[in-house]
Simulated assay, not measured.
Amino acid sequence: METFVNTTVALLTVLALFLVLALPSLIGLRHEWRVDRELRAARESARPAQKSSSKPTEPSTATWYAEGRRSKKLVSS
């Protein structure tokens, strides 16, 4: 009977230590899941408000040329 009690106490001690060590990780994992869920919901609610065209806009040739000229002036002076 004494062996059974010792074994049970040892098992409960190991389980308690495991819970103490694993609890911060489990709490962090739960927090990460909540943040992911909130980000997903925000992304879904923001989609209809976006522009219909998903193609990124490119600067015109004149803008590209002017920026190139500005950068050359800064380098040469």
Score class of each variant (00 low, 15 high):
M1T: 11
E2T: 13
F4H: 10
V5G: 05
V5D: 13
T7I: 08
T8Y: 09
T8L: 10
V9R: 11
V9A: 15
V9W: 09
V9H: 13
A10C: 01
L11F: 13
L11P: 04
L11T: 12
L12R: 03
L12M: 12
L12W: 07
V14A: 15
L15H: 02
L17T: 06
F18D: 04
F18C: 09
L19V: 05
L19G: 10
L19A: 14
L19M: 09
L21N: 07
L21M: 15
L23W: 07
L23A: 15
P24H: 11
P24F: 10
L26C: 12
L26D: 06
L26Q: 14
L26W: 12
L26R: 09
L29E: 07
R30F: 14
R30I: 11
W33C: 06
W33R: 07
W33T: 06
W33Q: 08
V35M: 06
V35A: 08
D36H: 03
R37F: 04
R37A: 14
R37D: 11
R37C: 07
E38C: 04
E38Y: 03
R40A: 14
R40K: 08
R40P: 01
R40Q: 09
A41Y: 00
A42D: 03
A42I: 01
R43W: 05
R43L: 04
E44Y: 01
E44P: 01
R47G: 10
R47V: 11
P48E: 06
A49T: 09
Q50P: 00
K51M: 13
K51N: 15
S52P: 06
S53C: 12
S54G: 14
S54A: 15
K55I: 10
K55S: 13
K55T: 13
K55P: 07
K55V: 13
P56K: 05
T57E: 14
E58V: 08
E58W: 05
P59L: 05
P59M: 03
P59H: 03
S60M: 07
T61F: 13
T61W: 09
T61Q: 02
T61Y: 10
A62D: 07
A62W: 02
A62H: 04
T63P: 00
W64F: 11
Y65G: 00
Y65I: 04
A66N: 07
A66Q: 08
G68M: 05
G68A: 09
R70P: 02
R70Q: 03
S71V: 03
S71F: 04
K72F: 01
K72E: 03
K73W: 01
K73I: 00
L74T: 05
L74F: 03
S76F: 00
S77H: 06
S77D: 12
S77R: 04
S77F: 06
